[in-house]
Design a protein around this nucleic acid. Structure first.
Lengths: 221, 221
DNA sequence: CAGGGTGCTTGCGCTGCATCAAGGGGCCAC
DNA sequence: GTGGCCCCTTGATGCAGCGCAAGCACCCTG
């Protein structure tokens, strides 16, 4: 069990010494759907590793409304920027599907990172990748239309076999893609009408991945 | 002169030892408006500090179009995520106003960071802040309308005295805000008609900052 | 199995923003 | 000064996506 957790990409990048030190301070816990893992008001007191499930990372905008920044998948790590910067940040995290996660107190993380340069390097690489992820999403938001974003999202989640799992509520996916649940629904059914996907509740079948990524550009609807 | 550069926020956070080592490897250069500092095709071979002027950081989207990620201001540092991750990234940088910058070769940066933990810490903090900046922009893109984004951009650039300098071309600002130059022009002149700003070419006067940030929400035009 | 609730879908009208296409105004070269 | 160019503006039109509101399917509870 613990060995499986130590195989987490971030921990293995950090090296065995840091991994076991972090694990010693960490707590493992489960979160059913809709559990609030972290509220925007509190100071970030821990770093989280998602082992299984799906977590939505949200952020309060200037006017108080909440927007979904990113959907975190298994084997990912979140809240690191907030833990590094310290202070209070308007982030929130909520389980979008039944999840298992590991909570690493910020104090432990800080204590270990100052004496383990490999952990520092792994953290640097990790945040750089996170930055890149947001950058791609930002450019996509700025210059592609909603239907293309949906198609791209689906292809990004494509499993071998042409299946796409969407365990999280539609409203969360819509928020991640910067659109309303209604628009998402219309686009998805439009893709189905065009024969590019087949909808089966929380699962989606993609017969031809190449057709999907190209066809969405043409069919505006 | 060199002392002034060493006072750069990033260098002073990295500590005097790392700062002088980085400066020893760095090259200082100037770039007139429209100079391409870095093209999306090349591998990132250097980290840049902007001393004066304005630089646009762009990124190629999936379909080949280029979007403006962020406008870099004086005393900021850019391209660090690409330098840390290595490999080829679709980033580009271009001077949007006459600029002076410092070029730090990636090799030197990597050589110094492995033996200077304070530089590593400063880099970590820096990228975390960059991440936060993109996150805020992303949420803003997702849930506010164009006119509000313009107002927020203006308030963010407000100098004491109610002046806003906009040395970069309108098209670049529009791209940064995720809209067309035409829309930006219309919004700005709409704000002027509402008495919230006064336009004077590349300079904008804001008589009442509070009125601007609140008034833009109401006036859809 | 009935009841209620939640989450997904669908229809319709409307608004914001993009798009296309001219029209000005300032800046630089000469 | 004056011509040319680039950038910014302004107008007209179309469409993508939002808001609202109703209908429907599924799930959990009792």
């Amino acid at each position: 069990m613990l060995e499986m957790i130590a195989a987490h990409p971030f921990l293995s990048a950090a090296g065995p010494a840091a991994a076991s030190a972090l694990l010693a301070a960490a707590q493992l816990f489960s979160a059913p759907r809709r559990t609030v893992i972290f509220t925007p008001e509190a100071a970030p007191e821990a770093l989280y590793l998602l082992l299984e499930g799906s977590v939505g990372l949200s952020m309060r905008g200037a006017d108080g409304t909440r927007g979904l920044l990113e959907i975190i998948g298994p084997d990912e790590c979140f809240l690191m920027p907030a833990v590094i910067l310290g202070g209070t940040w308007p982030f929130g995290a909520e389980a979008l599907a039944p999840s298992r996660l590991l909570r690493i107190p910020a104090e432990a993380f800080h204590a270990i990172i100052v004496q383990d340069s490999r952990l520092a390097e792994a953290s640097l690489t990790h945040i750089a990748r996170q930055w890149q992820g947001l950058a791609e999403q930002l450019v996509e938001m700025k210059l592609t239309k909603a239907s293309e974003r949906v198609a791209h999202f689906l292809t990004g989640r494509l499993m071998p076999g042409g299946r796409v799992a969407m365990p999280e509520p539609r409203a969360a996916i819509a928020a991640r893609l910067g659109m309303t649940p209604e628009s998402l629904s219309r686009v998805m059914h439009g893709l189905e009408a065009a024969g590019l996907v087949r909808l089966q509740g929380r699962r989606v079948d993609v017969p031809d991945a190449k057709a999907l990524s190209q066809g969405a550009r043409a069919s505006g609807h």
